[in-house]
Design a protein around this nucleic acid. Sequence first.
DNA 1: TGGTAAAAATGGATGATATTGATAAGAAGA
DNA 2: TCTTCTTATCAATATCATCCATTTTTACCA
Lengths: 148, 148
Amino acid sequence: MDDIDKKILKRLQENARVTISVLSSEISLSMPAISERLKKLEASGVIKQYTAILNPELVDKQLMALVYLSFDNPSHGDSFKNFVVGESDIKECFYITGDFDYSLKIITQNTTTLENLLTRIKEQTGVIKTQTIVVLSSIIDRPSVTIE
Amino acid sequence: MDDIDKKILKRLQENARVTISVLSSEISLSMPAISERLKKLEASGVIKQYTAILNPELVDKQLMALVYLSFDNPSHGDSFKNFVVGESDIKECFYITGDFDYSLKIITQNTTTLENLLTRIKEQTGVIKTQTIVVLSSIIDRPSVTIE
DNA sequence: TGGTAAAAATGGATGATATTGATAAGAAGA
DNA sequence: TCTTCTTATCAATATCATCCATTTTTACCA
């Protein structure tokens, strides 16, 4: 991955719908050259996905919360993973160091839907401790890793 | 925003580089109609951004950490925000309820770069307490909010 | 250093895709 | 019912992406 690839990635992070012809003129490389590099970046897995970032308030997801939880023993990891994958309002799930085992980021409609989700979480077998923190405001929320 | 708009958004979340002609045939609506709806969704701010999600391991960002911090009084919010905006390894910064004032999600190169960033964070005026949690593994990491 | 093979870039032609403008269909309100 | 606004379609044009043959560049090794 050289400087040209980094320029392509940086541009696609800013705007994933940028055309190859625009990339071509900005980077001063022919369109087929850009196109081939892009295909390789996609095939190699450097680019995981192209996605549209939506405004949460405008699609009726007004509440963000962070939930931490612990299990009585580590054997419940697989079933918990299946649960988490099926809950579309759980946006992040990390296995972490510290007092808790997992951290979750939840983006949901309102306190009612949060309450229901928390109930489902606490019903998972092996969950012995949870802590919920409500996000009051988002200072920054950058997608993914960035190329310098 | 009707069902057709939701279909467009859902598809763009899956793949932000999907062409209008593909959307047109999938949704059974003419290309100009899709194009116009898309422009409106962009102009209204429902679509905040199109971005490429990169593989952190393949762009040399191997370490994720969650940092919590408190201020001695609320007056330092503005300067802290400026600081956070300038630190590209800080991916999320939320003002939160609970024992701490802010939560940060950091994606960085290694323990050395994390240490340096933590030092800079603790140097911010008014910071009286921090806690750092290292992410061991990511179970799920979904971008943004989703349309059902 | 010079020669060779592999990789990457270019240019022009072709095919696909997007936009424009004119027009028609459908819904809401007087 | 008529008007008006919105949203759709169609056809033409313009733009864009891909393909393929050729050239240039890079990397490697004698």
